[in-house]
Design a protein around this nucleic acid. Sequence first.
DNA 1: CTTCATGTCACCTACTATGTTACATGATCA
DNA 2: TGATCATGTAACATAGTAGGTGACATGAAG
Lengths: 159, 159
Amino acid sequence: MKRGSRLSGMLHLLLHMAEQDGPMTSERLAKLMDTNPVVIRRIMAGLRDQGYVRSEKGHGGGWTLARDLARMTLRDIYTALSCPSLLAIGNRTESPGCLVEQAVNAALTPAFHEVEELLLSRLGDVTLAMLSADLHDRLVARGGHQKLEHVHASRRTKH
Amino acid sequence: MKRGSRLSGMLHLLLHMAEQDGPMTSERLAKLMDTNPVVIRRIMAGLRDQGYVRSEKGHGGGWTLARDLARMTLRDIYTALSCPSLLAIGNRTESPGCLVEQAVNAALTPAFHEVEELLLSRLGDVTLAMLSADLHDRLVARGGHQKLEHVHASRRTKH
DNA sequence: CTTCATGTCACCTACTATGTTACATGATCA
DNA sequence: TGATCATGTAACATAGTAGGTGACATGAAG
């Protein structure tokens, strides 16, 4: 999984967890993301520290949601993932001695901030409960009552 | 130079070029950015193709601005650099079969688009002429009539 | 015709995110 | 109590990629 799609991927996992009764193991989650269980644990650790999910060891263990979907926004999740920056571009130097570069930064920095704020704000407007509702609409629209289990073709077959 | 600071770095170079009479060689530009001349040529090539700068070979050759600063916006430069995306985050999959992922994408995609549009719009509002004016204000404010030549300490000394 | 500059290819290097292995810890169940 | 299953985590391996470097061709100016 590429770095930039952590938020997207994590939301994906959380919604799958919401559709399910018991805990989900790192292994099952890893298959959904086509990656390794250890990677899942690494990423989920951040969410657990923030109280969004819970993990349990031993038989019947795994990951469960620890908070109501209506009380989790996309922004919460993004923040818990602690990704460095929302923007792919930035200033070359933060405190340049060169006046030219100072002028460049002065033009760019406010725009960057404004844009980051907007995106965070948009993410803050959406709860996981809304996503879940949308998901159920889609399930109905598709007409089927299929379980979600088999929609993920496992692309990587490790011999 | 990190990938994300291409725009910032290029603006820096263009303003330095604007402050100067004749052409600037790739070597001089490279020193400003603390990098290699070949890297400069690679990056400048895009701008040349769009008609923003001109390059000349031979004695007295180098790079010159090919368009009035008032007719170059930061957006123009960004576009000419053809960086992949403005945002550091994105959807995990663009056309997912999984309904869960479709719901996630449906929530994220419009926000991403809106934010990208905002940033591009902000960049489009600023011309290099404005940056240059700001630079000259800063030069005056600093009181000195120093040339810009020596503000860049060359950090890398290749013995 | 020598020098200086770009144009470009090919390759090397460094960095970093991710994947993987290994082993410890703890919970559950027989 | 011991086997099993799960997470926790450290340590290492791998891969992908941006950037740096060297070499050489092209062309302009003196």
